Simulated scan of single mutants.
Amino acid sequence: MTGIDAEVLVAGGGPVGLVAAIEARLAGLEAIVLEPRDGPIDKACGEGLMPGAVPLLGRLGVAPHGIPLRGVRYTDGSRDAVHRFAEGGAVGLGVRRTTLHDALAARAAALGVRVEPVRVAEVAQDADGVRAAGLRGRWLLGADGLHSTVARAAGLARPAPRGRRRYGLREHRRVAPWSELIEVHWTPEAELYVTPVDDRLVGIAVLARQGVGLERALAGAPELAARLADAPVAGSRLGAGPFRQRTRARTAGRILLVGDASGYTDAITGEGLRLGFAQARAAVGAVAAGRPSGYEGEWMRITRSFRVLTGALAGAASSPFRGAVVPAASRLPRVFGAAVEHLAR
């Protein structure tokens, strides 16, 4: 181990980066997280964990407080499509991003994960290891988000595609949740995701093209606007995007990309964390076995449904057929339910 600070360096201390570090420790590998931001890290996201993500956290010994989510409702104001998650299966969980971060950080610390307050700006690797932010590891897992420095430094990033550039906004409102479902309100310009995250707090996330703000989006969703009319804002409004990011591959020598850093299609199905957690487990398994090239095939398998279904839905949402999405889901409830179940698990 001469000259090696840890077997695994993880660039990025968000949920996926922390899960990657926890997975490394559970596999018997030393792990250091490289993250310049202090305290719980927040992000503009829907804050709903799909049912498939909850047992992944449980396996790691992480159980954040949240509100059970029992299904998904799509509405355009005149038609609804509702699917409740299959009986006997895991339910989803609405959980504040900061609450999730605190739970993961506590578990990582308990397992001996070290967090260094440094920013990864450059990456260099040789046959025996990788150097980043002045530290050296056997492997580097890039979990540094949509605009990944690691992906660019490793030559894995591809130019963002032109057109269909969509962005996200999120704020919280102090109001008692009125549903156990993740609500997705479709307007002509945006999707608004409503997720209960505490007994008197809901998260409102907007997904739309640049320039469509929350007030403008709410104007197209009168049912939701009425529910929020007297609900005060809690905290700051956050933004993120553009969401569509591409990579040439997910591995380059001793560097592996996980989570949004590995490429992302759209936030429209809200399953980014489930995918990121599964990718983190697969990446750690590959490096623990000394076969990092095997991760590429695992990444393709893990993301296949996401890439196909999310790509199709995101394409429809950005096309002249946008207005047909909710009516089609309403007329074909079995198809809608099967798609939700497939993505949720």
Rank of each mutant, 00 (worst) to 15 (best):
L60H: 01
G58F: 04
A153W: 03
V150K: 04
P55G: 03
D38L: 12
V150W: 08
D102H: 11
D80A: 14
R79P: 05
A27G: 09
A109G: 08
I67D: 13
G145I: 00
A53R: 07
R70V: 10
G155S: 07
S78A: 14
P161F: 06
Y167D: 03
C45V: 04
G77E: 07
G168C: 09
A31H: 10
E171Q: 15
L156A: 01
F85L: 08
S78R: 15
I67R: 15
S148G: 06
P40K: 13
A53V: 06
L69G: 12
R59C: 02
L111Y: 03
G77W: 03
V123E: 11
E171A: 14
V33L: 05
A106T: 09
A86K: 11
W139S: 09
K43D: 08
G112D: 03
V115N: 06
T99L: 00
I41A: 10
G155H: 12
T99H: 01
D42Q: 07
E35L: 09
G77Y: 01
R170L: 11
G58Y: 06
V130Q: 13
A121L: 14
T149A: 14
D42H: 07
G77A: 04
P51E: 10
P68M: 09
A124Q: 13
V33G: 06
H101N: 04
L56P: 05
E35V: 10
R164D: 14
L34V: 09
D144L: 07
C45D: 05
S78E: 14
D42E: 10
P159N: 09
A127E: 15
V150E: 07
R152H: 12
L141T: 10
L104A: 08
R73Y: 00
G134K: 11
L69R: 11
G155L: 04
E47H: 13
L56N: 05
I41C: 01
L26V: 03
T98G: 06
R152Y: 01
R107N: 02
G112L: 04
A110E: 15
R73S: 03
A81Y: 03
D76P: 08
I32L: 04
A27V: 06
E47S: 12
I32K: 06
A86T: 10
V72E: 02
G88I: 09
H65G: 15
E87D: 13
R162K: 11
D76L: 13
A109V: 00
A109F: 00
D126W: 13
L29G: 02
I41H: 13
R107E: 10
V115L: 10
G168K: 02
R73Q: 09
R136A: 15
R114P: 02
V54P: 14
G52M: 06
D128S: 15
A53P: 06
Y167C: 04
V123W: 05
R166M: 01
V113I: 03
Y74F: 15
A106N: 04
E122C: 12
A153S: 14
P68E: 14
S78Y: 12
R107F: 00
Q125S: 14
G145H: 01
G112E: 02
E35W: 07
V95D: 07
R96N: 07
A27H: 11
L135Q: 01
L56H: 08
L26H: 10
V130P: 12
E47M: 11
